[in-house]
Computed example of a mutant assay.
Amino acid sequence: MSSVRQDAVRERIETELLAPLSALELDVEAVEITPAGKRRILRIAVDKDGGVTLDDVADATREISRVLDESDAMGEQPYTLEVTSRGVDRPLVLPRHWRRNVDRLVKVTTTDGETVEGRIVSSDETAAGIDVSGTIREIAYADVGRALVQVEFNRPGSKEA
């Protein structure tokens, strides 16, 4: 499948899933189609405020299967559907990603190459406040080249800490 056609299929699937998943209070974060022999793997990542539970993934899987069964978006070639949560390895790109990760440690590389690591303390539609060693630094999303949540095993404020 050409990359242009694959992009069109991804966009169509995302569009078709928008309303049904919104009804479940879920956002589509990513749609990936990967060849796997004679089949394809359709991987869809979902997220919501407060995080995604296993029940949310199960509900999303049922709804996505229903929508795709009624659609011809995936064509005739067989595929395997995988529904997952967004995961910490995905970059923070949208304001909702920042909002959902307040209190998490983040590593930001700005568009001018500077690296900043700190805890997200606030976010709005245009910028996030990051606590860098006790100083709050406001970083506009337009100035972010890449931002990733850092994995913490003993996060302050967590039950295990």
Rank of each mutant, 00 (worst) to 15 (best):
I41G: 01
L105C: 05
R96D: 08
Q150R: 13
A128S: 13
R146L: 12
D131I: 10
S3H: 11
L94T: 02
D55N: 06
G51Y: 09
R96S: 14
K48M: 15
N101F: 06
V121R: 09
L17A: 02
T126W: 00
A140H: 00
S22T: 13
S158N: 00
R104L: 12
D124K: 02
E125I: 05
S133M: 03
I130H: 00
S123K: 04
E16Q: 12
L92T: 10
D55P: 02
E70K: 08
Y141M: 00
G134H: 02
E63R: 15
A30F: 04
P35D: 15
V93S: 12
G129W: 14
L68W: 01
T135M: 03
K107A: 12
P95V: 13
S158F: 08
E114I: 10
L54K: 03
A58F: 13
V9C: 03
S65Q: 13
E14D: 11
T126D: 07
R12Y: 08
Y141V: 11
V108T: 05
R39Q: 12
V31Y: 05
E11D: 13
I13S: 02
I44L: 15
T15G: 03
S22D: 12
V4N: 10
D112P: 01
V57F: 07
D27K: 07
L105K: 03
G134D: 00
A147R: 10
A19C: 08
D55M: 11
E76S: 14
R62I: 11
E117V: 08
T109K: 12
I41C: 14
V132S: 02
M1F: 06
A8L: 14
M1K: 03
V106Y: 02
V144Q: 13
V108K: 09
V57L: 15
T61A: 15
A73T: 06
D131L: 00
A161P: 03
V144L: 02
R12A: 15
G145D: 08
R5P: 05
A23D: 11
I44C: 14
A8I: 07
D7R: 12
E82V: 11
R66E: 05
S3P: 05
S65R: 11
I33W: 10
S65D: 13
V46I: 15
A19R: 10
